[in-house]
């Protein structure tokens, strides 16, 4: 249904099934490239570990209770590591002419977006799943919070990747590509960040869910709105 909204580049692309297969093919391509070198995932992992570590002892002197800082530190780590991954997302594509190939292929533009976006979510989530245990150990948090934290981290990564993938595709076509992405992305995702930090704090402090349900609603609403908007606007970004 969504495919009807956007003019397809090919005549032979019909049916939801074939659309999904194309999205899966693009995800598969990204995952295969990444698995070959593991460059991005390892860089993101080490970087976010460093952030958590540095913050932990940088704040140690003045903060009376490190626990109060934990949610903020976790999300700063995720935001910075995610930025690292996103800024690389379209660089390979552009430098090796992959994007031109993708655009020439009989693939709907929105499928390219969905594929790249899901790929980014996969990478960011994977890194965060490895990071979370370290975070819990370093900040001395209860282990039982892990599944809930993973859920919030996933929703936050989705918010991050939704608009981040679109901006990343824009940023590679500019002169100052690496510098520009955070400047564009951070102000836009502030609401998602606030919601994610709130939810994380609620999980760590054992606050009843009723008190923070509006934040969950905000985070989900952000995800839905920005995935839908980016999905429709991506076509304007890659048309050449």
């Amino acid at each position: 249904m969504a495919t009807d909204l956007i003019p397809t580049t090919s005549t032979a692309t019909h049916g939801f099934g074939s659309y999904l297969r194309k999205v899966a093919a693009i995800i598969g391509k990204d995952v295969a490239t990444e698995l070959r070198t593991k460059e991005m995932i390892s860089a993101m992992f080490v970087f976010s570990l460093l952030i958590i570590f540095i913050f932990n002892f940088a704040f140690d002197l003045r903060a009376e209770n490190m626990q109060t800082l934990a949610p903020g530190v976790l999300w700063v780590a995720i935001a910075f590591a995610g930025m690292l991954g996103l800024s690389r997302s379209f660089v390979l594509e552009r430098d090796r002419g992959v994007l031109d190939g993708l655009l020439l292929a009989p693939v709907d533009r929105s499928a390219i977006y969905l594929g790249k976006m899901i790929g980014n979510v996969l990478f960011i989530s994977l890194v965060e799943i490895i990071i979370l245990p370290f975070f819990i150990i370093l900040f001395n948090q209860p282990l039982g919070t892990l599944p809930f934290l993973a859920g919030v981290v996933f929703l936050g990564s989705l918010a991050f990747a939704s608009v981040g993938t679109l901006f990343s595709a824009m940023a590679v076509h500019t002169r100052a590509r690496d510098v520009l992405l955070p400047i564009m992305l951070f102000p836009v995702i502030i609401p998602a960040m606030l919601a994610a930090v709130r939810l994380t704090a609620a999980i760590l402090d054992n606050i009843p869910f009723d008190e923070v349900s509006q934040w969950l609603a905000l985070l989900v609403a952000f995800d839905v709105i920005f995935i839908a908007a980016s999905f429709m606007l991506f076509e304007f970004v890659v048309e050449e």
Partner: peptide
């Protein structure tokens, strides 16, 4: 594209 996405973010920011 950027102006449009930025404008979507303003009401959500306001609420948050």
């Amino acid at each position: 594209v950027y102006a449009l996405l930025a404008s979507f973010s303003v009401p959500l920011n306001w609420m948050a």
